[in-house]
Amino acid sequence: MTAIMKRDLKGYFTSPLGYVFVAAYIIVMNATFYITSIMNASNGLTTVFNVMLYSLAIITPILTMRTFSEDYKQKTDQLLLTSPVSPSGIVLGKFFAAFLVFVFGLVLTIVYVIICQAFGKVNMASVIGNYVAILGVAAVYISIGVFISSLTENQLISAIATLAVFALLLILDLCYNLVNTAWIKAVLYWLSIYRRYNTFIMGVFSLADFVYYISVTAVFLFLTVRMLEKKRWS
């Protein structure tokens, strides 16, 4: 697993992909921070975290689009699947490589907290809660992206399909406010990655919601393992 993780991590930074991802992420976040915090001389990071959340939907596909697709195309999946590594080891290795690249981008945003802290008081508990929640949402998104990339050998299809799924999640989230029927609301709440994030934005660390993120991630990684195993029987 670690061998695959290391190789994929290296792969992100020997191709433009890792740089494009980190650059895109940082440009969006810097702009947001500049507009909402610096120009307003505000100490609040709520908008920054909100943008951080919604931008995930657009940038995660960059990170995951070629995870398995590229391997299928170059036939290197044949190497991985015939080496003494279990399918779950392969999936976890690839997932953590993508996740670590994301963490790298995220770590760069800690600068905002330091700046705000230097000029005023930041609610540290809320900031940490927000970061943990962002990591949770990112894990969910990356696992969805990894799963979709295991379905196709075409990177472009992989990226667009992932974007479409994220867009759908966003629409479900918007629908939540539009319906009044209780049970539909309950179902939508259950499906909405974003809505669960609101508690974190408000500065409440909700363990239940965090566990929800971890579980969804586990489900998609499990599905990816099944996809790899299914390939053997095709």
Binding site: T2, A3, I4, K6, R7, K10, G11, T14, S15, Q74, K75, T76, D77, Q78, L79, L80, T82, S83, P84, V85
Partner: peptide, 23 residues
């Protein structure tokens, strides 16, 4: 395999070193 399973973005050295870890 029929088509050698190579990571084109690696050097021969990096690739074989990766295989060493993988196996």
């Amino acid at each position: 395999p029929e088509q050698p399973p190579l990571y084109l973005d690696m050097t021969v050295e990096e690739y074989l070193s990766f295989i060493y870890d993988l196996k």
